[in-house]
Simulated scan of single mutants.
Amino acid sequence: MVQAYNFLGSWQLFPEKGNYEWGTRPKSGIYQIEAIDNRKAIRIHQSWVTLENESFVSDYLVEADGEIHPSENVELAHEVQVHFIDTVNMELHFYKNSQTFLHITHEILPNGFLKITQQGTHSNGEGYTNTEVFHKQMSVLPYGASAAGAIVKATEEGVIRHKALTAMEEQTHMQLEQIRKQIELLAQPAQEIHQRKELSKLIYSAKLSFKPEIGQVYYLYEKNDNTHTLSLISPTEWGAGMPYKKFVAAVQLLADHTWKERPL
């Protein structure tokens, strides 16, 4: 089961990234793949909520040795086959009367997402393809969900658990979003303080022929020898006769003795 390692765990659906030729787009879902101890088998738990707030769950066990095996649920399929192509590609085949009627591919994308493509056939022989994208959850939940499930069965227990899961996801997402915004708000003044610090170090290493006053605006220049000097004269007052190599910035001394750049 080494090849199954990357697939194991709980995956949360990106509803907006899916493409559905059959069925309706779900608004949330979890897809969980679990290895069965001491067996070459995997259990796939699924549940999802439709846009109409209908909840569905399913659970099935499949042998994962690449061979065709009888299905646990003959109403779903007569036989099932799981094949790991490599560590990032897995295929499920569902057979009826020795014919594949449902083919599900699992692909771990370079960004770590799980892409599930479901190719099936309606009773009238018309084919369809549904594609879904999931991201891996940090914690493993006691059950999973997806709209790509082969077995579809609504249960009261599944509805209750999925509603609780959805509420938990919404609350934690809101809390994390609040923290992210707080970090962004803190990052801006921190960047401004860092800029003032670097500017202040440059000014205090410059030549000062007078004592700067708090609140006063001064003008920082770079001299021909690449050193710096502070002046009361703005670059517009020098005209064409500016004696320095270049003008750097207009600066103001603050009460905490740091310097802030000001508009010229």
Rank of each mutant, 00 (worst) to 15 (best):
N89T: 15
S231R: 10
I36D: 05
V140M: 12
P189L: 02
T129V: 15
E198D: 06
S205D: 10
E126F: 10
S205Q: 14
E170A: 15
H83V: 14
I42N: 05
Q175Y: 05
R39T: 10
L109A: 14
Q32K: 12
V88P: 00
E63V: 13
V159P: 00
H93F: 13
Q32I: 00
E157F: 02
E192N: 03
E237Y: 11
K115D: 08
G125N: 10
Y244W: 13
T172M: 14
E261F: 02
E192T: 12
Q188E: 11
K27P: 03
N111E: 14
S146A: 09
F94S: 00
L92G: 01
E63Y: 13
G127K: 14
E192V: 06
Y244V: 03
L176T: 11
Q46K: 06
D256P: 03
G18N: 03
M90Y: 08
H122L: 15
T172A: 11
G149P: 00
N6S: 12
I160R: 14
E184L: 07
F247Y: 14
Q216Y: 08
I214D: 09
D256N: 15
E213H: 10
F7V: 08
I214V: 15
V152I: 10
Q191I: 07
V217Q: 04
I68M: 04
E91K: 14
M90Q: 11
T229M: 12
A147R: 01
S231A: 14
L102T: 03
G9Q: 07
I151W: 02
M168H: 14
Y128L: 09
E157N: 01
V217A: 04
V159M: 02
A240S: 13
N6K: 08
V2D: 11
Y221K: 02
